[in-house]
Amino acid sequence: MNNNKTTVETWDIEIKPQSSLFDLSLKEVWRYKDLMLLFVKRDFAAQFKQTILGPVWHLVQPILTTIMFLFVFHTVAGIDTDKIEPILFYMSGITIWNYFSSCLTNTSNTFVANASIFGKVYFPRLILPLSVVLSNIARLGIQFGLLLACMIFYALFKNTPIHFGISWLLIPLLVVIMAGIGLGLGIIISSLTTKYRDFTVLVTFGVQLLMYATPVAYPLSFLKSKSYASFIEWNPISPLVEGFRYALFQKGNFDFNSLIYSFLFMVVVMVTGTMIFSKVEKTFMDTV
């Protein structure tokens, strides 16, 4: 009866049970950019309230881990470090790996950890994992500063000059790919944990195991001629860690094709992740 309406009504929001797989409104995410930055600020400010050392705590973990690696992998196991100063070798690996692992673990509990906010108010859910990735950049910056300080120390007193070169331009690219893989995997896992908490358990030790399958504490060249070397090479994080060291020290082997492999892996993970995420975000409150 009412079908012959002359004007078609336009609606700003339509709430429907299901949406197409690619119902990702980046425009909306952009509109909420202030919120994203405030979450970053909150994470950073709240983390060290009522501590004396504050953000200095971000330095303690890489220093202690470096000392540990130095002892276990260098002194005890005697693994050679690609002609890079062992301390710089371990610290560079730990710095970039920390970024990846914190992106992954902190985004993987997005839904469960923020259920109380998500249950009360709507904003594009993707804001939260994105803010995690951004606030981890601050931490990466601090730890990278520590690494630079060590490199300068070695250049001044130990006669290992720093090679500034075009290769340093690779670093931002590596960080972006790292963030992409961490974010992509993180949101896939966070989508699955809303129903099955089993994945939370898996992530905590899975990340730890993955570190040993990544050339963080040993160079990829150490594995040459070993039967399981290809396994480590298939790990999409390996080229990123190796590439990071190559960019800093111009030592070690780095091959551009493997970087492309990592990049493609990131694209696949990001696309799958956002697809699953946007499907789950609509009703996860009922199952979380």
Binding site: I13, E14, I15, K16, P17, F118, K282
Partner: peptide, 12 residues
């Protein structure tokens, strides 16, 4: 904060 099972809501 959650989606309906069937039906829709339109908002301006």
């Amino acid at each position: 904060t959650t989606a309906p099972t069937t039906g829709s809501i339109k908002i301006k």
